Amino acid sequence: MVLTHLNQRGEASMVDVTDKSVSERIARAESLVCMSAEAFGQLQAGQNKKGDVLATARIAGIQAAKKTADLIPLCHPLALTRVQVDFELEPEYNRVRIASFCKLAGRTGVEMEALTAASIAALTIYDMCKAVDPAITIAHTRLREKIGGKRGHWVPGESRAAGDVEEHW
């Protein structure tokens, strides 16, 4: 296996993507924010004292995707053409499912941007709800789909680690 983020001297370096073809690149990621019934009820009713939790988390996720290269070492700064952050409330589990979508025409993928968007949206929900429930958990942040590049279209397959449970996922 070739480690692409190391130069010939074994030092960290950004991958040169100059010779890669420009193509449409898409990535989808998600994260779950699990909380107490009280915190979820306030979020769902729009009664959080800090304001509109989901609107704030959406903006935070979009901004985070645009700043990924500033946050993750060796990531390329990308000219994203679309970033979308959506939420699905799951009252039966007192949780919020965050879905992020990133797109561009470029030489490198947008997986890290999609994962960063979902992660920062989740952290924003935590921040805004922690006064009601400091035991909120953020779980199952993962890439859901990738389109473009050498691999073409990728979705999670059956090659999951032993013990990885998809229950209620």
Score class of each variant (00 low, 15 high):
7 N>L: 08
11 E>H: 08
12 A>L: 13
16 D>R: 12
17 V>C: 08
17 V>F: 13
19 D>R: 13
19 D>G: 13
21 S>L: 09
21 S>M: 06
24 E>F: 09
25 R>F: 01
25 R>T: 06
26 I>T: 11
26 I>P: 01
27 A>H: 08
31 S>R: 08
31 S>T: 12
34 C>R: 15
36 S>M: 04
40 F>A: 12
40 F>R: 14
40 F>V: 14
41 G>P: 14
42 Q>V: 05
43 L>T: 04
43 L>F: 03
44 Q>W: 10
44 Q>P: 00
45 A>V: 13
46 G>H: 15
47 Q>M: 06
47 Q>W: 06
48 N>R: 09
48 N>M: 13
49 K>D: 15
49 K>S: 15
50 K>T: 09
53 V>N: 10
55 A>P: 08
55 A>I: 00
55 A>M: 06
58 R>M: 10
60 A>T: 02
61 G>P: 10
62 I>S: 06
64 A>V: 05
64 A>N: 10
65 A>C: 00
65 A>P: 06
66 K>P: 12
67 K>V: 02
68 T>A: 05
69 A>G: 12
72 I>L: 04
73 P>I: 02
76 H>Y: 11
77 P>H: 05
77 P>F: 09
78 L>R: 14
79 A>Q: 13
79 A>C: 13
79 A>W: 11
81 T>C: 12
84 Q>C: 05
84 Q>N: 13
85 V>S: 08
85 V>I: 07
85 V>E: 03
86 D>M: 03
87 F>R: 02
90 E>F: 01
91 P>C: 02
91 P>W: 06
92 E>Q: 15
93 Y>C: 11
93 Y>F: 15
94 N>D: 15
94 N>T: 04
95 R>G: 00
95 R>Q: 10
96 V>M: 10
101 F>T: 05
101 F>R: 03
101 F>D: 00
102 C>R: 10
103 K>F: 13
103 K>A: 08
104 L>M: 09
105 A>H: 14
106 G>C: 09
106 G>W: 04
107 R>L: 02
107 R>A: 06
107 R>W: 02
109 G>H: 09
110 V>P: 01
110 V>C: 10
111 E>L: 00
111 E>F: 07
112 M>A: 15
114 A>G: 07
114 A>R: 00
114 A>K: 06
115 L>F: 06
115 L>C: 04
119 S>M: 04
120 I>F: 12
121 A>Q: 04
123 L>K: 06
123 L>I: 01
123 L>H: 12
124 T>C: 08
125 I>T: 07
126 Y>S: 01
126 Y>A: 02
127 D>H: 07
129 C>Q: 06
129 C>R: 00
131 A>E: 02
133 D>N: 02
135 A>M: 09
136 I>M: 13
138 I>V: 10
139 A>W: 08
140 H>N: 11
140 H>V: 03
142 R>E: 05
143 L>A: 04
143 L>W: 13
144 R>K: 03
144 R>Y: 01
